[in-house]
Simulated scan of single mutants.
Amino acid sequence: MSNFDTERLIIEIQSRPSLWDSSATEYANRDLKQRNWEELVEIFGGGDLSTAEKKELGQELQKRWKNLRGCYVREVKRQNDIKSGSGAGSRKSEYVYYKQLQFLQEVVAIRDADIQEESTEDSRNEEAQTQDTQNNVEKRSRKRKRFQTKQQNFQNETDHLVEVLNRSIERKGQREKSEDDEDRMFLLSLLTSLKSVPPEKKMTLKINMMSLINEAMQENPRGRSTFREHSGSPDPH
């Protein structure tokens, strides 16, 4: 595209506001934009191009237009800097297509105002988001502390309950052990006497003792055999 007619491209695009005028209603119409670019492909490429070649030409036209618009915006900024005195020493020659692109002047001014407004709004939103984030962090921190406090209180109550249960079990075991020791000592005290019983009478004595224990268990609801609850004593003879 060495002999490309840039001025013709500018004229054709100017006649199609959907491609450049962000304030126009048709600017948001994507279907219309697509048709306009296809029209430009036909104008600059003719009808003999393949589908792939048309696609490539369309991309090249859009790239050229983007470059033209960018150059115009930079030229406007340069001239504004010169007027304000901050552009001293910059080039003096005007951009070659500056006058042809003057129809973009209002759009560029609107866009600059939009950018400034968006920047201010973004700054406010960022501050609000920062404050919200800080508030959320503080809320989560307070919730975490309350949860940790409840968890610690629950753990303390659990530890106390376990301690009480352990002491209760220990006391119960000591009582049972004490009672068992008394019974054991009593039976051991009979061992010497039992050994002195003649062998032929020992079996009868054991049977009588078992009978007494059985009677005591039936009378005692706790099911514990205690010789002290029985008023009689076995006759070894």
Rank of each mutant, 00 (worst) to 15 (best):
R78K: 10
V76N: 04
K195I: 13
N156G: 10
G85Y: 01
I207F: 00
E118S: 12
E182R: 13
S231P: 07
K83H: 07
P198H: 11
E138G: 12
N29M: 11
N67G: 15
V108S: 06
N220H: 06
E138L: 10
S189V: 04
I169Q: 01
L161D: 07
L101E: 00
M217H: 01
I207Q: 00
S86R: 00
C71Y: 02
Q129A: 15
E219Q: 05
L191Q: 15
R35G: 04
T130M: 00
R142Q: 05
N208K: 11
S15I: 13
E12T: 13
K150N: 01
K54I: 04
R146W: 05
R35D: 00
R184L: 11
G89E: 10
D235N: 10
P198Y: 12
E39S: 14
K77S: 10
Q151E: 03
D235A: 09
N166G: 14
V164N: 09
A52M: 06
T204Y: 02
N135Y: 04
D5V: 12
I43P: 08
S225K: 01
L188V: 14
G87H: 01
G85F: 00
T204M: 00
N29Q: 08
T204C: 02
N214K: 07
T120P: 08
R91V: 12
K143Y: 12
Y98P: 09
F186R: 03
A52K: 06
D122H: 08
K55Y: 13
S119D: 02
G232K: 01
Q131Y: 06
K202I: 14
D5I: 12
Y95F: 12
S22K: 06
D235G: 11
Q174M: 10
L194S: 09
L187E: 03
G89K: 00
S18A: 14
T120H: 04
S23Q: 11
G232R: 01
R124H: 13
A128W: 04
D122E: 06
L68S: 09
D48G: 06
E26W: 00
A109Y: 02
Q14H: 02
M210W: 03
R146T: 13
Q59P: 02
L161Y: 04
A88P: 05
Q218H: 00
R175T: 14
L191S: 14
E219N: 00
E39H: 06
L161S: 11
V108Y: 05
L190V: 10
L191N: 14
R171Y: 03
S233I: 10
S178C: 07
F103I: 03
V197I: 12
E121R: 13
L161E: 03
H230S: 05
R111M: 03
